[in-house]
């Protein structure tokens, strides 16, 4: 496997990570979302491993394994259990304007390409072209959190954003120092647990996980 082939594989993976980000944006079913999220993690971990191989940086292998175990196995499993306990596995979110959301997403990709153009000029890494994709993934995750109404889907949006940040770190600087990555991983794991507890609290308070119910919390006029 030579360097240019690795770069090709990496750009294919980047393209598919972008596709999964869009998939998260438009998928209606909760389980579908979970699957796409797991796929995104898998692609991310392969991509990290390949970057580690082609750059000869061995700590990236550890990151790859960490990503694989955390984002492909543990987190989806936690969410899976959560969804089953909360009995929302059959829920379908009513989203009206999927084509518009897609168009906004496309605009965000173009915007992030434009935004990362100066960095691309300066950088010399093989992965520099994927930086735009990474930034776009972050933005798409945020867009997902904005457009969704259900709490669980918002969590998935948040985790997708984190995926984007991780990808950005890998493609811009060949990853963050290992200590930081471990810390972030731990943070996410704990966040997932806290979210789980919160969900139960939200549901016992409002009888639903629809975040619309939280609009009641505003001040009376």
């Amino acid at each position: 496997m030579n360097a240019s082939f690795a770069a090709q594989i990496n750009s294919i993976l980047a393209a598919f990570i972008l596709l999964t980000a869009f998939g998260l944006l438009v998928q209606r079913r909760v389980f579908g979302l979970l699957h796409i999220f797991a796929w995104q993690g898998l692609l991310l971990s392969i991509s990290t491993a390949i970057v580690g191989y082609s750059a000869g940086l061995h700590h990236l292998y550890i990151s790859a394994v960490l990503t694989l175990s955390l984002k492909v196995i543990v987190l989806p499993w936690i969410l899976y259990v959560l969804i089953h306990r909360l009995k929302i596995h059959k829920e379908v979110e009513d989203m009206v304007n999927i084509p518009t959301t897609m168009l906004i997403g496309i605009a965000l990709v173009i915007f992030s390409y434009h935004l990362t153009a100066p960095i691309r000029e300066l950088s010399t890494l093989v992965t520099r072209s994927t930086l735009a994709v990474a930034l776009a993934t972050v933005m798409l995750g945020l867009l997902m959190m904005i457009t969704r109404k259900k709490a669980v889907t918002q969590i998935i949006g948040f985790l997708a954003m984190e995926n984007g940040l991780f990808f950005a770190a890998t493609s811009a600087t060949y990853g963050m120092p290992l200590v930081i990555e471990m810390g972030v991983a731990l943070d996410i794991l704990i966040a997932a647990f806290i979210f789980g507890i919160f969900f139960f609290q939200i549901r016992t308070t409002f009888d639903t996980l629809d975040l619309k119910a939280m609009e009641k919390l505003k001040e009376e006029e």
Binding site: S11, G105, V109, Y113, S129, A132, V133
Partner: peptide, 19 residues
Amino acid sequence: LGFAFLLATLGMLSHFILE
């Protein structure tokens, strides 16, 4: 078909961004 358009557009974008 909107999804088909999205895929085709991503193809176009990834040509410019990634290739």
